[in-house]
Amino acid sequence: METASQGRVQQHGIVGMSPGAYARVLIFFLAPAVLVYTLFSVYPLLDTIISSFYSKQNDGSYVYNGVANFVTLLTDPTWSAPFWNAFINNIKFFLIHMLVQNPIGLLLAALLSLPVLRFRTAYRTLIFMPTMLSVVIIGFTWQLILSPLWGIAKMFLQAFGLGFLFGPWLGEESTALITISLISVWQFVGIPMILIYTALLAIPDELIDAATVDGLNQFQAFFHVKLPLIWPTIGLVSVLTFVNNFNAFDLIYAMKGALAGPNFSADIMGTLFYRVFFGNQLQLGDVSMGATIATMMFLIILCGVMIYLFLIQRRLQRYAF
């Protein structure tokens, strides 16, 4: 018997590999992802947050000035008015998605998951189609449809005797934001639909059979058996909606430009950020204030995610089938 090598210290679980070779393996596999992610995602995010604590001096240099930018953003009327306007608009934008997009998504998913439904795949595929297309395309298409010049929307309303309802919805302060929100809902309803549909399919048929045997009809079975089981998915859909809405930009920029008119009535955080950072016809670009707004957006999204993680997700029981 050879001498036993006593007290062998193993740093890792791969027998016959030196610590150096092990380290090389780790570096080979991890370095590309960590480098690209750190350099192009984490570093810019941290740098943006740091920039929000600096402001530009007349000589072009940047000087640390604490939370002064945030104070300016929230109290100085030239900044706070657009900020609060964008913030409130963004909340409206989010609420319309929550109240229209997600319930419609739920309804469609519930219908699609009914047993013995013909054309299921066709419906699912076609309803998801707008989600595939670029927001630019969608925005412009709807602009054309709603345009009084072309008159498609008016024609449809008139067909139902509702012609008097028609107006230049995109052009009026009172209706621009709601109209754009609904277009966004129209485009993205496929996402909650697919997520909820998947969750519904995962529920075993036996459960519904059991509910039927217990005397529940289809509506009761849905509300008392299926719905409680998919709350976690609805929670996830909600937080995804929140993050995407407070990060939105493309549709409003595509339809209304950086000014999000008329009179900033469709301005949300994303467009405000773009306008402040890059400047526009009305003002010069301001890196520090742009970074400050981005940081505020970061904080808002963080709050939403935290509320989801600590308040909502914890209370939602997950079930494994």
């Binding site: 006593q6 062998r8 193993q10």
Partner: peptide, 12 residues
Amino acid sequence: AGLEPITSGAIS
């Protein structure tokens, strides 16, 4: 087989 490292002792 060498799929698990051993803490002490010897295998030949």
